[in-house]
Design a binder for these strands. Structure first.
Length: 551
RNA sequence: GUGCCCGUAGCUCAAUGGAUAGAGCAUCAGCCUUCUAAGCUGAGGGUUACUGGUUCGAGUCCAGUCGGGCAUACCA
């Protein structure tokens, strides 16, 4: 929207014989009394031009000329800002674009022809998903949605391992519960998985096989059954909040040799060795990260001969590069904070462009129930199961609450608030605005035959009241908000923005009668409502929440 | 000890280095014979943890201090 200001400002600088390396910054002032748009160019240049910023600003204004009917007023204000005030008719005319572009409004071609992979959730199938995983899952899903709006072909990937020690313990845990179920006297080890779901899996086996497996030497059935059941439950849980993955990458494949070729893990060791970053001592194989200024080297192969998690991690990311992705996004929780710097260092050493990797780390989740804070990392009872949260507050509230705070902030999930069917609940505030518009349009269709897809868009420019113009102007920010959210990998920006749109619409609705206005004003206001509904829908789609037509 | 994140209204949180730091909740006062009151209007509430620095300008950047979280495994 503000793009048209840029060339005029640049031309004004030329006319004033000013050449500078500094970029022209155009911003939207927080206070609309300071204009619809504003530039600080005179402040930035005052030093190198040795000019008083206000004087400089005044001269620049003298060199600026805009087409008739666009910028109504320019002024120098404060220490030397140049403020631009747009003509209301110009703003409202621009709102027509939203109607023309419809579902496509807000999208961009910035990522056209490029591919991106977003890795998220990536929980091993050792147990049901916890609330903490849910936050990363929704964050990753929204980031993938955001990238798609920019034209990227996005692959949503889930990385897991069903071959490690944890999975062995899982299988053993099930076996112990099964033996208990068979009436055998066994002592369940404290180090094993305690959750009730283990008993349920054991029950499944008992019902199917009776005690036939109790004496068997074959133990893989316990692990495999557990994996199948748990993975199934994870996928169902994710499905409930609209999360789906395109690909599931099994870490185990990185250990496997193919047609006599070395495994991916072994290949990574070879490559790092060629670069001189591999050392062997104390019986283990080390990534010599001390050469990169780190305090300690990192173990890649344990003295037992097994790779530590770091090696397959590097191999996995190498694989992402081999698959040719232009952008690689990893989403994970704060507990993995130490994991990625080594991976990125290794990829850099191996000659890959590490600027293609973006890492989104989300901080932890606590929940409050009846004002009591419950920390999620303590795994007591079933209170932290994602599935139960979804059942409790619903999929829309689950998703929105996870992303309505910045990912860098600890999230306080107020379960009582999320359940409320009232205005306190931000989910309802947003959805109510949408439902209200739908209801209005239904009524308009019945009473006046208004067609949202019909003609008459040009009438928009006759609207000039403050609630109308403020709403229209805010709607035009949508593409910019998406770009920001993409740049920062931060869907929270979208939540904040949609809240503002809902608020502006409610104000407009309150102050400007729509169906009772004269026919032209009525049509114009209905189209403004249609445009608002479009922005809400497009935003909801990115966030993955539903757009109810009535409430 | 070291690394990363956080510290903003009573509470939960916003604020691409910009102008008088904003929302929601809670508190108080108003608006429905009128298109959804699941809404709107108004009031009170702040030394942005602290101390310095950089700059025309700092909640934001830098250094340090204090507090909280997460990591600092031959676990993943």
């Amino acid at each position: 929207m503000q793009a048209f200001l840029l060339p005029v400002i640049k031309r004004a600088l030329e006319s004033a014989s000013i050449t500078t390396e500094k970029p022209v910054q155009i911003e939207k002032p927080a206070d609309s009394r300071n204009g619809d748009y504003s530039t600080n160019i005179a402040l930035m240049l005052s030093r190198e031009c040795r000019r008083n910023p206000r004087e400089l600003a005044l001269e620049l204004i003298g060199h600026m000329a805009f087409p008739e009917g666009t910028v109504g007023k320019m002024e120098v204000a404060g220490p030397g800002f140049i403020n631009f005030f747009l003509e209301p008719s110009f703003i409202m005319q621009s709102v027509e674009h939203i109607l023309h572009e419809g579902k496509g409004f807000g999208t961009s071609c910035a990522g056209k022809g490029k591919t991106a992979i977003v890795e998220y959730v990536s929980a091993n199938p050792t147990g049901p998903l916890t609330i903490g995983r849910g936050r990363g899952g929704v964050l990753g899903d929204c980031i993938a949605n955001l990238l798609e709006t920019q034209g990227y072909a996005v692959t949503r990937e889930y990385y897991f391992n069903d071959a490690g020690r944890q999975m062995q313990i899982l299988g053993e845990s099930v076996r112990y519960r099964y033996l208990e179920r068979c009436g055998r006297d066994v002592a369940f080890p404290e180090t094993h998985y305690q959750g009730d779901y283990i008993r349920e899996i054991a029950d499944v086996l008992f019902i199917e096989h009776g005690d036939a497996l109790a004496g068997s030497a074959e133990r893989s059935v316990f692990k495999e059954t557990a994996e199948t059941i748990i993975f199934d439950s994870i996928r169902k849980t994710l499905e409930r909040i609209g999360i789906r993955h395109d690909t599931f990458f099994n870490e185990h494949t990185l250990y496997m040799e193919r047609d006599g070729d070395p495994s991916s893990n072994a290949r990574v060791l070879e490559l790092l060795e060629e670069k001189g970053f591999i050392g062997r001592y104390e019986g283990a194989t080390w990534f010599l990260t001390t050469k990169l200024g780190q305090e300690k080297d990192k173990v890649l192969v344990k003295s037992s001969g097994e790779p530590s998690y770091r090696l397959p991690d590097i191999a996995y990311h190498l694989d992402k590069y081999h698959r040719g992705f232009d952008l690689i996004v990893n989403v994970f929780g704060a507990d993995h904070i130490d994991e990625y710097p080594d991976v990125i260092e290794a990829l850099g050493i191996l000659g890959h462009d590490t600027s293609r990797i973006r890492v989104a780390i989300n901080q932890f989740v606590t929940t409050t129930v009846n004002g009591e804070t419950v920390k999620m990392s303590t795994r007591k009872g079933n209170a932290d199961l994602l599935d139960e949260l979804i059942a409790d507050v619903g999929p829309d509230a689950t998703r929105l609450f996870f992303i309505m705070r910045s990912k860098d902030s600890h999230l306080n999930f107020d379960v009582e608030l999320a359940k409320k069917q009232s205005k306190d609940n931000p989910v309802f505030y947003l959805q109510y605005a949408h439902a209200r518009i739908c209801s209005l349009l239904r009524m308009a269709a019945g009473e006046t035959g208004f067609n949202p897809a019909g003609s008459g868009h040009h009438l928009l420019q006759m609207l000039s009241l403050e609630p109308e113009v403020r709403l229209g102007f805010a709607l035009l920010d949508f593409p910019e908000i998406i770009r920001n959210a993409v740049r920062m990998l931060e869907p929270q920006k979208m939540v904040e923005y949609l809240h503002e749109i809902a608020e502006l619409y409610h104000k407009f609705y309150q102050e400007c009668p729509i169906l009772k206005a004269d026919p032209e004003t009525r049509t114009a206001r209905l189209f403004l409502s249609v445009a608002t509904r479009q922005v809400l829908r497009n935003g909801f789609r990115i966030l993955g929440i539903s757009a109810p037509e009535s409430m």
